[in-house]
Design a binder for these strands. Sequence first.
DNA 1: CGTCAGTGACTACATGTGTAGTTTCATTGA
DNA 2: TCAATGAAACTACACATGTAGTCACTGACG
Lengths: 122, 122
Amino acid sequence: MSERISDAEHAVMEVLWKRAPLTAAEVADQVVREKDWSLQTVKTLLSRLAAKAVVGTERDGRRFLYSPLVERDDYLTGVSRNFVDRLFGGKVMPLVAHLAEADELSADDIREIEELLRELKK
Amino acid sequence: MSERISDAEHAVMEVLWKRAPLTAAEVADQVVREKDWSLQTVKTLLSRLAAKAVVGTERDGRRFLYSPLVERDDYLTGVSRNFVDRLFGGKVMPLVAHLAEADELSADDIREIEELLRELKK
DNA sequence: CGTCAGTGACTACATGTGTAGTTTCATTGA
DNA sequence: TCAATGAAACTACACATGTAGTCACTGACG
């Protein structure tokens, strides 16, 4: 049932996942380093996220402090699963195979992943 | 510049990637096994894909035959790259690590991926 | 030859998304 | 005290998307 987070909203979430709580202005300051958006745009996104209960608000005098209510990890798990399901029939192997074939994996990547898998088996 | 393919459109593409060219009715027949859509819906999706030049049309009497103009592999590469870039800073390792931590990888998966990586190094 | 079924073309319409502008209200500095 | 400032709330608006409905045409069948 977890609410959908759009691309633009995601950029805002990344800021809050780094540091929170923040005011809208502080979030906008950070977001603007990446995206060329106006303060109003960021505020709209924050409102939408709050409406979806993906971020929480806490009154601080006349303004709000925003904090994520969803863990970044949980979010990533959700979208990753969805992604792998939709595009690779739910199997991770074809995804890795595809990335490998498409030369998206460097030798370093391969070594790191092998290392990781070795750890996992313990 | 490659045109965006929406989720619903993607389901249609999967059918055409399996076999093509097909008529709209044939595509719909296949799609309906997965999604509970009407023939009209599938036709709309085909039109939109054709408008975006993601599928090509060839007149066959009074109807059309549809074929993909985009390779499945190229499409997958595009979306995978985009996905990994947006969510994992362009690195595949964190993605695999994440899936692993989230217990999305079975022991079989791990073995298969190791096998694949071993092959790659040759 | 007239009718019907199948086909593409066009239309529809609610909701989501990107991207703000405008309004209203309270606080604070002069 | 009063005006300017800054914050949230509300409004806007075009385009994308999911999900069809309707229309007009044409060829096949009786």
